[in-house]
Each structure stands twice: as C-alpha cells, then as structure tokens.
Design a protein around this nucleic acid. Structure first.
Length: 954
RNA sequence: GCCGAAGUGGCGGAACUGGUAGACGCGCUGGACUCAAAAUCCAGUGUAAGCAAUUACGUGCGGGUUCGAGUCCCGCCUUCGGCACCA
C-alpha cells in the first residue's frame, strides 16, 4: 500500500460528507464545547494561506475536544455584506448577490479542501434574508428599548413613556443623548411629534446628527482611514465634515458593564488593555461656568477639579452648540475663518498633529465660580466635540496641551501645585500640595479634589461624574449591499418599526449601485420600494458591516430556525462560545459590538449568558512578500524605463515609483535576491501591455522590444526586484492560494506545516522552506505501517518497553501542548516519536493504533486511512483520545548534568531511584569533576531531583 | 508621543513555574545506494582556537539579584502591531 495523498484525501473528504461525520446535534447530558472561528468576508481574491492559520488551530482543538468526549459545535459561515462586492458591482454591473454567491462557493470549496471538521449544515450567510431578518429584528428590539442606569438593564420604551406620564424627568436614571428636563404635565401637553423626539433621545437605536467625512466627488461618506490630509485616499478629492441625520446605537449605556465584565474573561491582558483603553473610563467632575452677559452656562468635564484656581482660559470645540452665541460681533470674522480651516481637516488629522496649536478667541467670558474673575473663552480644534461636554477649563500649569496653547496664544499660567515633597512625581501622578488656590491652599491634591466637588455641589454648579471615551456607534451607511433598516417614516417623519410578521425587509432589486447625487443610499433609487401609501417612506440607509457579525455566533446554535433568532432550547444547551480564534484587527470593534448586542439580548431575557466569548486567542497574520520593480517617473525618449533594484537604489529611489509584479513571475520569490529573467519580463509585458515598449535595464544589459542587449557574455537579464513584507492582498498581486500548496503536498501536510511555522499568535511572512520536513515526516509515519506493498503492522506479542515509553511520552506531551495551544511543538513531538520508533523498528499494533488516534486532529486524512487499514469501521474522529499510562513514562536511568559553580562540567547517568546523598557522593567522585574542585572547599551541594546537580566550591 | 508585543545559529523556531541554551525541521558538509540523478538512508553542523581530548565565548546592549538568568529586577537600543491632543 502506497501513500497516495491526493486520492486518499479526496476519498475521505467525500466519505465524511456522506456520513455526516461532523454533524452535531443537541445531546442533553453530554457536555458541550463550542469552538468558533471568526468567519471570513468572501472576497474575490479567494482564501489565501493566511486565513487557515487560525482555522487549522481551531480545527485541531475541536477534534481534540470531540475525542475527549465533548459534543463539539464547530461551525463556519460568511460575513457576506460589504463594500468590495458593491464596488465590483459598480465597476462591472455584476449584482453583489451573484458575486457574493460565487465567492462563497469558492471559499467553501477551498475550506473543504483543507479537511476542516465544520458542520456545514449550520452555515450562515449574513446577506441572506433568512439571516438578516433576525439582524433587523434585533435592531427593532434596540429601537424599542432604553437603558436604565440604576437597574443596569435595558427596559421597554413604553415603560419610559409611562415614567414621563407620571413623573416627567424626575428621578429618571436613563442613558440619554442630551440632557432634558420636563414635568409630567409638560410631557402630557407635548405634541405626538415632540414626544417621539423626546423618546428618540433615550432609545438604544436612535437617530441623531453625526458629523461624517463627506466626499462630494465620490458622492459618499468615507471612513476616517479613507481620508488623508483632507482628501479622499481614492482619487484625492476634497472631503468635508458634514452633519447628517443618521442611526446610532447607544453602546455608551453599556460602558460600565463592558468594562467590568471583562475581568472574568479568559482573554489576553494585551487585548483586555486595548478594550479598556477604548472604553476609557475616567472619574472627575462636571462643572458649570456661568457665561458673562448670558443666562447660559458652559459645562466642562475635568478629572482635576482641584486645579480650578489655575484656570486661565476656557476652550470649546469648534462644533460646540454654544459657539455661535459665544462669538461676539468683533470676533465673528476670525471665528468663521477658523471654522472653515477646521472643516477641511479630518478627525484623524486633528488628532495626529500634536505640535502646532491653533485656535481663536470667541470674545466671550465666563465667571470663575470661586474668585469671580473673568475668564476668556476660546475655540480650538484640540478640544473634541464628542468627548466629555466638548468644552474644557484650561489649566496651563498642569496640562501639557493647555500649556502649549497658552504659550501660543499668550495666555497667563498660574502655578497651583507644589510638588517639592514628591521630587520624582510627574503631572499624571496626581500628587502635590495646593498653592495659590484660596481655600485649597496646603491641601493634598486628592483631598482638594473631594473638597472642590463638595463645594461645587453646595453651590449647585457641579457634581461628581464618570466619563467614558467610548462613543455611540454610528449605524447608518449610504450603501446598497447591507441590511435594510426595518423602519418606515410616516408622513410626519416619525420612524416606526416594521411589524415582525413583515420581516425580513428585503433589498429591492437594482441595477445601479452608485449613491444618488445628493448623497442618499442607492436604495433611494428604488422608488416603488421606498414610497408607501399615505406618504410613508422606507428608511433608505443600510446597516454597517458589523451588524450581521455582532450576533452570528448565536445563529449557528440553531441556524435554520424560522421562528426565532435561535431557540431557547439550543441556547440552554450551547450557552456561549468556549473558544474563539481570530485576528487582532478585530480586537476592539467586532468584539466590543458583539459583547454589547449579547448583553442587550441578555437583558431582554433571551440569552442565558451575559458574555459571548469565554476564551479568545488572537492568531498572528501570515504576511506575503510584495515584489515590485522600479519605474523611472520621467520617461526616456517617450518610453518607460524600468531599472534593476540595485541600479535604482544606487541612483535615487525618489525618482522612481514601484510597480508591483505578480509573484508568479518572480524567480527566487521571497528571497533577498528575487529577480526577473528574460522569460519573466515577457510574462510581465503580456500581463501589463501598457509597458510593452518599456526598456528594462539591469547590470547585465538592457531589454527592449523583445531583444536583450547584453553588456557582457550573459544571455539573460537579471532584473532584481524590490521585496518587502506586507499584507497578502489582491492589489499587491502576492496572494498565495492554499490550493496550490495542497495540490503538491496534500492537506495534511499543509495543515501541519502551517502549525509547525511557530506559535499561532505570531505573525510571519509565508515561505515554504521547511515544508519538505513535514512532508517527509508524514511519509515516514506511513512507513511504520506499510512499506512498498508490504503491510508491516504486527499484531502478536507484546510491544517492548522503549516503544511503550515513547508512545506514552508522546501522548502526554501532545495532549499537554494542545491544551496550552502550543501546536507547533506538538508537530515536533510527533516527529521525535516517529524517528524513535523507526530506530527501534517498531511496527506493533498496540503502539501504532493509539498513535493514529493521537495524530487524527492534526492530519485527519492519513489518520482516517490508516485507521481503516487497521480494520476499523467507524471514523477515527469519533474514537476516544488515547490515555497516558504513567507507569510507562518512568525511565530506569536518568542523566544528570553536573555543574561546578553553575558551569556544566560533566554528565552522570544513574538509576532513577538513586537518593540525594548517593548522587552527591557520585558527583564528587567523578574524575572530570575532580580537576575543577581540586584545592577548593565544597561549600554547598545543590541537587534538583531528576534535573541537575551543582557543586558550589570556592 | 502613548499603549501593547517581541529581539535566541545561515533560516523557521524550542527551552512549560529560574536548573544541560539551540529540541524539531529547513539549509549546508561528508558518506551509502545508483551508470548518473531524484528519492531514501547514515553521520556531522552555534562561534573561535586545537589533530584531538578540550578550552574560551555565546540568547539585542549595559548593569544587578542568585549556587545557577534566554527566563527575575533597573536603565537603554531596535523591530513589529495598535492608537485616543481624551480634558
């Protein structure tokens, strides 16, 4: 029997599918285990070798858990709504649902090729109406609820209306957008429209005006990272910040729980730190400064109320609501000019440019609450509208930015903290004694903070407050390929949720996917769909990419249920995700939104758990090498000129641009000396015909119009390319498809090789240098069973003790390493085991049979084949995990390193049960040791049983 | 700038709680088989000196703790990833 990889892998993949080997059902009484992968966006480029890294690890773990006796849920699906399909549709006219369907088919095939144990009967696709019906349903629930901070729980909006009816805003503990105060009487006399507006201020899904990066030329809203220097990254068109009425989700209501509940999760500290920083909780006070010559007051948030006597100016954000009112006629021109400047800058620009302070005086003043002094109000872009109250009290003596601003604007600085007693303290340490601070003088900072807040409270102009950096999530997109909102506006413009029976609200068919000229979603083109009876209209925005991915892990539990997003029965059994593996790029966004939705559904009583993912592992990225050649920016005699990397770098790289080359054409790809030869230049020209007439120059000569003119005796050019490590992406032409690797080496080999590359958390560029080692290992493993046409497995007699020891040692090591997700070292253990068994010429059934089971999670195909060749009928993947028999692990002898003063000088092999005193005697008696301790006094002997012996002499 | 992760042979990496640094694999060198090659098998392979036994040095750099440090502590350097001028 030969090891025919391709044949054998295809055979078992079909068999597993026919047998439903990986299908799972609820089995009451059997312990569950849920292993989840972050589902992919099915892009046109197909799956590349980076995707499977995490999938292989989770596949191994899921199989391992199943063999240990767990009922394992291990599903896969597709995050199928998204911008690329829509852009492809705009370019080619292919409907996003068609391209998405094709891409998914390809992904599914590629995943199948790798032998993953997904239960495909549970596949989800976020772009299918059966799925997004429930995304819409969850949105409606968010719309119909508000958050009660006192009960720390979402509650139905009717209960809030009831509260208003009875008490107005008295004793209200709701999360809200803007602060409101009214009596029950006032509520009752409000118009219906006004009441709806008020309720909108409290709903968990609500509409508000948000500033977006609007690009007129592209007719669309851009994300922060799509904007560079006030211009769109694509095309370089101007971008302005424009207010738009859009849907948002009140994730801020859950800030405290999102922060607090993280403690119990089995996530890395680094990841928790990222989420913690994102939420950004800070304790401080809100203070109201009364504005001179006005009956308004200016609210600020500060973490340092103790520094109130150091305030020398106030700053409001350029978008602050009160700014127009604060601006005096003689400052109007300056303020407006400044606003125009600010508008041209994206949020990212405003945040990244630290050095240069800008801002203008508004002309108004506030009154200091204690000294009564007049303090000027400025506006400056370093104060952000969405953080705190959008205004600060500036204390240049104790804040670097305020100081920089004061220096720029020529404003005074008042020292208020004496740190003489804490010479090493920095500002952020919050220590010191107050000076120049009236009633605070001499107090410690911490005491002063409390005293100031108390005084402010007495005067009713301030209070303690906890502030979060976290902002509400913008939930509207002006796009086609996303979930439509299940919302209808009546003729008064009041939004109403669609009746549950009418869900899903499906996307209307369209053939033009461009946004409308006035910036509305392409859905606005579908007049018949938008316009309803009685002047009612549908919402035309769609939901963002993270809508469908915020709850998909729940749908897998009960993927086809038409009655509910998931049945109670399935939830009671599967509970939550035990292990979630995915990339760090989703560390904040996706995980935060999922946790928020999960908690919300928990509040409504739909879920039994309040956190979705118990344990999380971030896999590293497998990067690619981007290969490019240097093109001289200036044409030479009207022709393009490409130069070898060596020549261009010796010249001046600024004069060149880099043109990426499809890596298939590169010789010695991924090495320092990757290059193009004659043949590859021809390929390149066929691929990019616009460079047909270009000149290619390298040290060996020049290529032009199909002719190579050598400088010396060479007959081929050797055009060195520029190589850099980066993301694998279609646009860099460096995608490596796992199918190609599988075709040559087989899926088992590919899987084990990716694991063998190193720890899963680590990022590394793809390279196949070591893959032969893994391939050889699998072949050697096979030869333990069969060589040429001979079946070697021996069924009679007892295996020898050495073989048994090796087997059980391997079982123990592999099991322990899987448990700590050290999968790369598992592969090494297997290699060592096979090497040893080969050396011992062991072919015994009692050794090989458990070994097949042990290898099954890693190399499922070869294991299944050998398992059946051993005469088994059912799948190896349903077999029990092999057990370690401790008795076999004990070796008869141990080898001790013997050190003198910590340096290893000799080795000593003794029976395992040698006692400590005897070990000391033997070590001291060794001739190799004698010469090192000669003439010295033995001060101490250190013996670590089973590990080492150290003689301390001096 | 801040936060996070990491620096170990020619390369990927191993060393779980402080205990033989370099497991395992690639590559390389030599040998066996072969007309030859591939494949396979055997041996060697951190650096330097030495015929050798052996010795010295060696985990980014500089200190420290310890019988003993890749691992712990202090100070630096470099690379990668993330980001918030957060009041």
């Amino acid at each position: 029997m030969e090891y025919r990889i391709q044949e054998l892998e295809a055979k078992w993949q079909s068999w597993w599918a026919e047998q439903g080997t990986y299908k799972v059902d609820l089995v009451p009484g059997r312990p569950k285990y849920y292993v989840l992968d972050m589902f992919p966006y099915p892009s046109g480029a197909g799956l590349h070798v980076g995707h499977p890294l995490g999938y292989i690890a989770s596949d191994i773990f899921a199989r391992f858990k199943r063999m240990e006796g767990y009922n394992v849920l291990h599903p896969m699906g597709f995050d199928a709504f998204g911008l690329p399909a829509e852009q492809y549709a705009i370019q080619t006219g292919v409907h996003p649902s068609d391209s998405t369907r094709d891409n998914i088919a390809r992904y599914r095939e590629q995943l199948r090729n790798l032998g993953f144990n997904y239960d495909w009967s549970r596949e989800v696709n976020t772009s299918e109406p059966d799925y997004y019906k429930w995304t819409q349903w969850i949105f409606i629930q968010l719309f119909l609820h508000w958050y009660d901070q006192k009960l720390q729980k979402a509650r139905p909006i009717q209960e809030l209306a009831g509260h208003f009816q009875q008490n107005g805003t008295n004793n209200l503990t709701a999360s809200f957008g803007e602060e409101m105060q009214f009596t029950a009487e006032e509520w009752r006399t409000m118009s219906n429209i006004r009441q709806e507006e008020v309720l909108m201020n409290y709903r968990l899904a609500y509409r508000r005006v948000s500033f977006v990066n609007w690009c007129e030329a592209l007719g669309t809203v851009l994300a922060n990272d799509e904007v560079k220097d006030g211009l769109s990254e694509r095309g370089g068109f101007p971008v302005e910040r424009r207010p738009m009425l859009q849907w948002s989700l009140r994730i801020t209501a859950y800030a405290e729980r999102l922060l607090h509940d993280m403690e119990e999760l089995n996530w890395s500290d680094a990841l928790k730190a990222m989420q913690r920083n994102w939420i950004g909780r800070s304790e401080g006070a809100r203070i109201f400064f009364s504005i001179s010559d006005s009956n308004h007051s200016l609210e600020v948030f500060t973490t340092r109320p103790d520094t109130i006597f150091g305030v020398t100016f106030m700053v409001v954000a350029p978008e602050h609501d009160l700014l127009p009112e604060l601006t005096t006629p003689d400052q109007k021109e300056k303020v407006e000019a400044y606003l125009q400047y600010v508008n041209s800058r994206s949020e990212r620009d405003r945040m990244s440019e630290v050095k240069q302070m800008t801002g203008v005086f508004t002309g108004s003043y506030v009154m200091h609450p204690f000294s009564g002094e007049q303090i000027p109000i400025w506006t400056a872009e370093y104060v952000l509208k969405d953080y705190g109250s959008g205004a600060i009290m500036a204390v240049p003596a104790d804040d670097d930015r305020d100081l920089a601003f004061a220096e720029m604007a020529g404003l005074p600085v008042i020292d208020i903290i004496d740190r003489a007693e804490w010479p090493d303290a920095k500002r952020e340490d919050k220590v010191g004694r107050m000076i120049h601070s009236d009633f605070l003088n001499g107090l410690l900072v911490s005491d002063a903070i409390q005293l100031v807040i108390d005084k402010l409270q007495e005067k009713a102009i301030g209070e303690r407050k906890i502030n979060y950096r976290l902002r509400d999530a913008l939930f509207s997109r002006q796009r086609y390929w996303g979930e439509p909102f299940p919302i209808i506006f009546d003729k008064d413009g009041i939004p109403h949720p669609v009746q549950e029976e009418e869900l899903p609200v499906t996307l209307p068919p369209l053939d033009n996917f461009k946004p409308t000229a006035d910036g509305h979603s392409p859905l606005a083109r579908a007049r018949d769909w938008v316009e309803l009876a009685d002047g009612a209209r549908r919402e035309t925005d769609t939901m963002p990419g993270y809508a469908g991915s915020s709850w998909y892990f729940l749908r897998y539990m009960d993927a086809d249920n038409p009655e509910a997003f998931v049945s109670r029965e399935a939830l009671e059994y599967w509970q939550d995700v035990d292990l979630y593996i995915g990339g760090t790029e989703h560390a904040v966004g996706h995980l935060m939104y999922s946790r928020f939705w999960h908690k919300f559904l928990f509040d409504l009583g739909y879920l039994p758990t309040n956190e979705p993912f118990r344990k999380l592992i971030n896999q590293g990225m497998i990067q690619g090498v981007i290969e490019s050649i240097y093109l001289l920016k200036e044409k030479v005699n009207g022709k393009h000129l490409f130069r070898c990397a060596g020549l261009a770098e010796a010249d001046d790289v600024q004069k060149y641009i880099q043109i990426p080359v499809l890596i298939d054409y590169i010789k010695e790809y991924g090495t320092d000396s990757s290059y193009l030869d004659l043949e590859s230049i021809k390929h390149f020209i066929d691929w990019r015909p616009e460079y047909r007439d270009a000149i290619f120059e390298c040290a060996k000569g020049t290529y032009e119009n199909g002719v190579f003119t050598p400088k010396g005796a060479e007959n081929s050019p050797h055009l060195y390319t520029h190589s850099e490590v980066g993301k694998m992406s279609k646009s860099k032409y460096n995608v490596i498809n796992p199918d190609d690797v599988v075709k040559v080496y087989g899926a088992d080999c590919f899987r084990m090789y990716e694991m063998f590359l190193g720890p899963i958390e680590q990022s590394k560029p793809w390279d196949t240098k070591g893959i032969d080692g893994v391939s050889k290992f699998l072949k050697r493993f096979w030869t333990l069973f069969s060589h040429q046409d001979q079946w070697l497995v021996q069924q009679t007699g007892e295996p020898d003790r050495d073989s048994l020891r090796i087997l059980h040692q391997t079982i123990q090591r592999v099991r322990d390493d899987i448990n700590r997700f050290s999968i790369n070292t598992c592969v090494s253990h297997f290699m060592i085991c096979v090497n040893e068994l080969k050396r011992l010429d062991c072919h015994h059934q009692e050794i090989l049979e458990p070994l097949v089971r042990l290898l099954a999670p890693f190399a499922p195909h070869i294991s299944e084949e050998l398992w059946h060749l051993l005469g088994k009928e059912s799948s190896v993947h349903h077999a029990d995990y092999p057990e370690v028999i401790e008795a076999y692990l004990v070796a008869d002898e141990v080898t001790y390193p013997v050190s003198v003063n910590g340096k290893r000088r000799a080795e000593m092999t003794v029976p395992t049960d040698t006692d400590q005193r005897r070990l000391e005697e033997l070590a001291l008696a060794m001739p190799e040791i004698g010469k090192w301790i000669d003439g010295l006094t033995i001060r101490k002997m250190i013996v670590v049983p089973g590990r080492m012996i150290n003689i301390v002499a001096g």
